[in-house]
Nucleic acid binder design. Structure first.
Lengths: 115, 115
DNA sequence: CTGAATCCAATAGGATACTG
DNA sequence: CAGTATCCTATTGGATTCAG
């Protein structure tokens, strides 16, 4: 029985904590479902505050999971979409979502496993 | 673009927050690798305190992911092992672990994807 | 519309010491 | 061995307000 050193798989905990941070999962899912503008995320994720949405989007951008694009229109529009790594992450989250659905007695049609 | 109501997939966020809670991932992995006794977990997970290990095991037990068994020996032994649901969860975590390895430029041999 | 700034409350985490 | 109890600090999250 070897010990699990942080330097053996250093970032797995960090990854779990990233996606485990409140709202982050919902934001990724919303992005996967086509959300683009700030207001779209806000509308799709009921209960989130501007502050946290802003904060999470910034964190996800910093992690390279979401790309932020400024569209020079009037007024200016800002788009947030999944970066390639973000798409892979959403994929990697699917089994977990399915586990969750199974466990909570999913009636078919939940939005995550459908993807 | 539908809104994502909490009642559409109510517990996915909760699941993410559960596994995202600090040390929880490591504990599940340790359990998957054969840890049984309190001291084994403590030894395998460097840096965790008794208090948090105890707290996490209790939470995981409450979630039905880990089973606690008292072995009537002298002194008494207590075993924590993955419940069936816990095993499935560990499985469901694998793609995420692989994503993490790919992303952090895994040199082969990391402990999670090997499972 | 898309945020940034501020303030406050709640929660989580860590260190240490102690017990059956 | 397998935890509990206590104390303290750091981090998070939420509400509200302001700005380009």
């Amino acid at each position: 029985m070897d010990s699990i050193h942080d330097d053996t798989c250093p970032r797995f905990e960090a990854t779990l904590e990233l996606v485990g941070r409140r709202w982050t999962g919902s934001i990724l899912v919303a992005a996967g479902r086509g959300a683009r503008r700030f207001g779209e995320y806000r509308a799709m994720i009921s209960g989130i505050s501007d502050r946290l949405l802003s904060q999470r989007l910034k964190q996800l951008e910093a992690e390279g999971l979401i790309e932020r694009t400024v569209i020079p229109s009037t007024p200016v529009q800002i788009h947030y979409r999944l970066a390639p790594e973000g798409e892979e992450l959403v994929e990697a989250l699917m089994p977990l979502a399915r586990w969750n659905m199974r466990r909570s007695g999913a009636r078919g049609g939940g939005w995550i496993p459908a993807a």
